[in-house]
């Protein structure tokens, strides 16, 4: 066996090679990651511009719509992609190679995050202009955006790997979109039943929408810093969970 000396790629090379395979899929998935989230979010803003003043306020409405776009572009699209990769044998092919799980996970979330940011930025600026707002860039806003994307992509990947059937994954990924209607992303907590208002206020998506709102249209303070830290922590937990979750290979 000595003459064969098994070789193994460094983790960085593993990540780059898998990322390349993911990049090659862009022509097949761009509409799902980019076009649909952008259209949905812009549609929300257009709808708002046609209606009377929303009780939650325009600033929050734009930040909330951006969060909706993030859920579409990260959670839903990653759940869909990973479930497809599992169904067509791509994950099994990768799992049979001498590679670690972490580079696969990170390669699978990198791309959706990269092109999920674009529709959100378009929304923030086009939406703001449509509603007569003047957003300003702050680093904490970008951090919140990335942490939220990471968290949602991690959750999407968890769903894609956990459920054996694609239909089950699609249903599970649709649930957060539905539940979002009952959280204070696009509504005031006072407009919701008391329990939902309280629980929804501490959900990471709500925290991310809070930070985005203050980072774009106000002066974020200690509370926002705390919230963005919480979102980042949830993102780390989501990715750590998906790295350990069974469903890719049983023995690791």
């Amino acid at each position: 066996m000595d003459a064969w000396r098994a070789t193994k790629a460094p983790v960085r090379d593993q990540y780059l090679a898998i990322l390349k395979l993911e990049l090659l899929k862009v022509r097949r998935t761009w509409f799902f990651h980019f076009l649909i989230p952008a259209l949905i979010a812009l549609g929300l803003v257009w709808l708002r511009s046609r209606l009377a003043a929303h009780p939650i306020g325009d600033k929050r409405y734009v930040a909330g719509s951006a969060t909706v776009a993030a859920i579409f572009s990260s959670l839903n699209a990653v759940a869909h992609d990973s479930s497809a990769a599992k169904a067509n044998g791509e994950l099994e092919q990768l799992a049979s190679l001498p590679i670690a799980r972490a580079p696969v996970v990170f390669a699978m979330v990198t791309l959706p995050i990269a092109y999920g940011v674009a529709p959100i930025l378009i929304l923030l600026f086009v939406g703001s202009a449509a509603l007569g707002l003047s957003p300003h860039f702050q680093v904490i806003g970008l951090v919140a955006l990335l942490a939220m994307q990471l968290m949602l992509a991690g959750a999407g990947l968890t769903l894609g790997l956990y459920f054996p059937q694609r239909m089950a994954t699609s249903l599970a990924a649709a649930v957060p979109l539905f539940l979002m209607l009952f959280t204070p992303i696009l509504l005031e907590p006072s407009q919701l039943p008391p329990v939902l208002g309280s629980v929804g206020s501490v959900l990471p998506t709500t925290l991310a929408a809070d930070v985005l709102e203050h980072a774009l249209f106000g002066n974020p303070g200690g509370a926002e810093l705390l919230k963005v830290t919480a979102v980042a922590a949830v993102a780390v937990v989501a990715l750590a969970a998906v790295v350990r979750l069974p469903g890719w290979r049983d023995l690791d």
Binding site: A9, L24, I99
Partner: peptide, 20 residues
């Protein structure tokens, strides 16, 4: 399963993932 890769990309990337 790597349907979007070319034949060369698929074989080369597999070799790279084996540490070449």
């Amino acid at each position: 399963p790597f349907l979007e890769a070319t034949v060369h990309e698929c074989v080369e990337l597999t070799a790279r993932l084996r540490g070449i």
